[in-house]
Structure formats: structure tokens, C-alpha cells
């Protein structure tokens, strides 16, 4: 378990946040800044939108960094491991697909599909089906994004 895992709840659901799993794809805060705002503390405001809307965005998280569960017994439950499986199977479909590079507004390059990465030392890096590369120059996890583009106020978009 991620020791930095955090939980945020409203009356109906609890959202789980695993920072070590986040690839900073920026999907959550681009689509629902009222709830997911990295500049605020806590960064998730569960009163910022309806439960349905929050669930909708949590499901769009490309990794298991964001998951949710219902608080009360008797409701249809989606525990974090289950949502994780569904996301995993979606990523499995990315296998054998051409790599798609997405230039995120004010954020990293998010790559999904079948690809390999060669590090700056010429060695192959860990294999995965989705990753985000830093494009602001400030990450401390080079070549990957660590979210530093927000601190740097990096702005660029081709939309």
C-alpha cells in the first residue's frame, strides 16, 4: 500500500488518492477543477461537484491513482481493486496499438499504446502501457512528469 495514500469523502463516496501511482495525465483537473485543484490544500474538494460528476472523472483517471467507493452498505459498491481491474483491462487493449502521444495543455506528453523507452544512459527503461514525459524541464523524476509544471506555471497548448 502507498504510505502516502489519502482519502477524501463526502456523504456518499470516499475518493482514494495514491500519489505514487499518478502519472500526471492532468485529466482530473482539466475536466473538474472545482473538485481536483492541485493548487489547493486539500487538493480534492469533495463539495465542489455532485457525486455523479466526481465518479465520472475518477473513472477517467488512466491509472489507479484515483479510485472511489461508496460509504454506505447496501449501495452498489465499487471498491478500489475492482475499478483498478477495469482500468487495467482497458490498458491491456492498448497493447499492439500504435503509440499515441498526447500533448497535454500546460502539462506533459502522455503516451499510450505499444512502445519502448530508452533512457539517456542508453539503457531500456521500465515497460508500461501508459506514461507521461516531462515537457516543462523541471521534473525531478526525469524523463517522467512529476507534476512540477504546475509550480513552474508552464504554459503551452496546441489545442
Amino acid at each position: 500500500m502507498d504510505p502516502n495514500e489519502r482519502k477524501y469523502a463526502n456523504k456518499e463516496i470516499t475518493v482514494h488518492w495514491k500519489p505514487s501511482t499518478c502519472i500526471h495525465a492532468t485529466t482530473c483537473y482539466r475536466e473538474l477543477i472545482e473538485v481536483f485543484n492541485p493548487r489547493n490544500r486539500p487538493w480534492i474538494n469533495m463539495d465542489g461537484a455532485s457525486t455523479e460528476r466526481i465518479i465520472d472523472i475518477v473513472r477517467k483517471c488512466p491509472t489507479d491513482a484515483l479510485t472511489y467507493e461508496w460509504n454506505e452498505d447496501g449501495k452498489v459498491s465499487e471498491k478500489p481493486p475492482e475499478s483498478g481491474l477495469s482500468k487495467g483491462s482497458r490498458l491491456e487493449e492498448a497493447k499492439d496499438q500504435p503509440a499515441e502521444i498526447r500533448i497535454m495543455k500546460n502539462g506533459p506528453y502522455v503516451v499510450e499504446g505499444d512502445f519502448t523507452i530508452i533512457g539517456s544512459d542508453g539503457q531500456g527503461l521500465k515497460q508500461m502501457l501508459m506514461i507521461s514525459f516531462c515537457r516543462c524541464g523541471a521534473s525531478e523524476e526525469m524523463p517522467f512528469c512529476d507534476g512540477s509544471h504546475r509550480i513552474e506555471n508552464f504554459t503551452n497548448s496546441c489545442d
Binding site: P98, A99, I101, Y109, F115, I117, I118, S120, F133
Partner: peptide, 17 residues
């Protein structure tokens, strides 16, 4: 597709992308 991280430089991309 292959992503090659060029040291202190850009990201070189080749292959199917």
C-alpha cells in the same frame, strides 16, 4: 514506437506513433 531520451536534450521518437 521507440522513445529515446537524449541526455540533456529532446525526446527522439521513431516507429509507429
Amino acid at each position: 514506437a521507440e522513445f529515446r531520451v537524449l541526455k540533456n536534450g529532446p525526446l527522439q521518437v521513431t516507429g509507429n506513433f
